[in-house]
Design a protein around this nucleic acid. Sequence first.
DNA 1: CTGATATTGAGATGCAGTATCAATATAAGA
DNA 2: TCTTATATTGATACTGCATCTCAATATCAG
Lengths: 158, 158
Amino acid sequence: MQYQYKIVSSDPKLVFLQLLETKGLKATKQRQLVLDYLLNSKKHASPEDIYRDLCKKDRSIGRATVFRTLHLLEESGFAEKISFGDGRHGYEFKFGRPHHDHMICVECNTVIEFINDTIERIQHKLAQTHKFSPLWHRHEIFGRCHECSLKKDLGTKS
Amino acid sequence: MQYQYKIVSSDPKLVFLQLLETKGLKATKQRQLVLDYLLNSKKHASPEDIYRDLCKKDRSIGRATVFRTLHLLEESGFAEKISFGDGRHGYEFKFGRPHHDHMICVECNTVIEFINDTIERIQHKLAQTHKFSPLWHRHEIFGRCHECSLKKDLGTKS
DNA sequence: CTGATATTGAGATGCAGTATCAATATAAGA
DNA sequence: TCTTATATTGATACTGCATCTCAATATCAG
Ligand SMILES: [Mn+2]
Ligand SMILES: [Mn+2]
Ligand SMILES: [Zn+2]
Ligand SMILES: [Zn+2]
């Protein structure tokens, strides 16, 4: 059997399988379950969410494996850990998506993605002037999404 | 004895004592020890650092009290929690200092502070276009400070 | 198929932070 | 100063989340 290392599909699952292969890792059922979960889940599921859902849904899966797989996905660029500001956090799927930053609703955890080239450029300059070599960054705005600020106003007035 | 609620000193200790008073809290030795520690420590001491140092330095102090006091200082704007990106974090003293963001060295945890009005302005606009009501934000650039990138280069070449 | 080996899950363990609660320190008033 | 109500404390137990250990199991190249 021939392995086509060079072909990069746009199907995340295929790319993931290819990644496993090039890394000499095995394509286990559990790793694929976690990947599928992230692919189908809308946003920011916590490790515990994932563990609980996979556990009851399909078959017994270990907590340790969920964490191990999330780390693998994270360091391979398939998933991103998003902090909710209060210590909790969740994962979002991220495959070949361009860098972006987040506004996070402190009421409902809704995440709005944004990217601004000017900000990115200034950031880079600032690092240079401090002789700092950036590896990655995190720019998070915490507050209330439109819906939740409306709710909050109603609550205050009643 | 008359209390002068209106006078705001520029001495952090006095302001802290005043804060305690207006909140009906007692000016205990422990609370002042933690404040002093943050005042004198250069940067980003972790709760455990603070506990350990205060413990051996002066007298027995409880872990719980260190956490309680850090929370108090944080929510009163006297201290700020800084994430080191790998889950660990530390506290920096912050008293009437203007808002700023951070570049954090992943090698030595050195923190470089920065502020850029253009970034702040764009941020605000972005929030508006998404009907998002910002409460606070966190803009952290992780990477290597000048010294550590030099060390890293040497290490690689040897 | 088979066998070498990567991976797994149960459970133990680690660790940071929190809750409990009897003992103590603080501070207002006498 | 002393008294007294009460806020605060620290030891300890406990929680939640994450990691470690290791024998059992699944994977996959040959
Ligand atoms: Mn960005
Ligand atoms: Mn800022
Ligand atoms: Zn919301
Ligand atoms: Zn450094």
